[in-house]
Nucleic acid binder design. Structure first.
Lengths: 193, 193
DNA sequence: ATTTATTCTTAAACTAGTTTAAGAATAAAT
DNA sequence: ATTTATTCTTAAACTAGTTTAAGAATAAAT
């Protein structure tokens, strides 16, 4: 059962006892997602936290010119959700879809709130989780305001070695905030060094 | 007493009862900070969450060329801290200093953890706080990867109308990830519209 | 009130990154 | 196995943003 992967994930923060495992297991659902299948689309309300058992997702906006801007990638043992839409129950401006065929475990808003309220451990774990995600975003912002595209690309390769070769360069460029053509130039320049 | 400003801040999330107020009050300290005074310097461990009663702070790095890069501004009723240094108790790579003379209330790591463990309400409030800060950062990242400097500047002015005219343009440029000279160009272009 | 430090602006020469276009290479679908 | 769609690369012309320098304007300090 894939729930074990989620339990192991939790135990990296704080191990759960039997009651907590039972409660959690009752409140999540497992789904198989095909490549290119959406788990969130613009104007929907994001009603689930999604844990990725296996596979790879991207979360992105589409601007007025139809260009995609990738806000996050997430692969196995990571979470993906539009936090703003989820907590404020408002329409999302984001899309989430699968880059690879994936297996996910989802928990919806009311079940998550139930766990937070009845078992402080869950609230703690999710506090720490979001704190860690906040740190990652701070690092990324710092990169964006202080480094050139080439450095940001090199840093991306170092930081996400296990996903960078599963993601097409078009999407890496989008994530870095540059055009795919310029990323091509950068890659060419690096290979000549 | 300035603790009231902090209590009001909490009650915007979840109101505290008398016991919680007493516990909180025992565990915080109030400080006056002069202009340009540091509350965190590189290589120190950030041991406090800092609530700003009045005044204005910036958190930033200094790169190898001596250039400052502003990660965050924070003014009255907001928090500032290096979350990475605080939770992992490791040396910070950031500086925090006062742009204006300020009054702050600080709570240190062990006291905050005490409150989290004994009163779930504090853990909840700080979870929601960091979630909100995460949303802000997501918006900022999206801006950085998808918009030109002029749009990012306009957005900054709209989003932070009460601090943008208290901050020198050098620092706004740094926050936006552009040079002050280019910000000058942008301001000139906008004023001609 | 005066000096000193900081901030802001302008301009010219430059470089990082974009746009447009088109072909080559690779991966996905049947 | 072949077709179709997607991804990647190259190059030329362009534009957004940087660098260097220097003077003007404003704010801070005494």
């Amino acid at each position: 059962m894939n729930i074990n992967k989620l339990l192991t994930h939790f135990s990296n923060y704080i191990p759960l006892n039997e009651e907590e495992i039972t409660e959690l297991s009752k409140r999540v659902i497992e789904r198989n997602i095909k490549r290119k299948q959406f788990i969130l689309q613009k104007n929907d309300v994001c009603n689930n936290y999604t844990f990725i058992v296996s596979g790879l997702f991207k979360m992105y906006t589409v601007d007025k010119n139809g260009v995609e801007h990738v806000l996050h990638f997430a692969s196995e043992n990571d979470w993906i959700y539009d936090i703003n839409s989820f907590h404020n129950k408002k329409q999302s401006s984001l899309y989430i879809d699968a880059i690879e065929p994936s297996i996910i475990i989802q928990i919806d808003n009311s079940n998550l709130m139930y766990l937070f309220t009845h078992y402080q451990k869950f609230e703690r774990t999710f506090r720490v989780l979001i704190e860690n995600k906040f740190m990652e975003l701070e690092t990324r912002i710092l990169q964006n305001i202080s480094s050139k595209a080439e450095e940001r690309y090199q840093f991306f390769l170092e930081q996400y070695p296990n996903i960078c070769n599963r993601i097409p360069n078009v999407l890496i460029a989008s994530y870095l905030g540059i055009t795919p053509e310029f990323l091509s130039k950068i890659r060419n320049a690096i290979s000549k060094k």
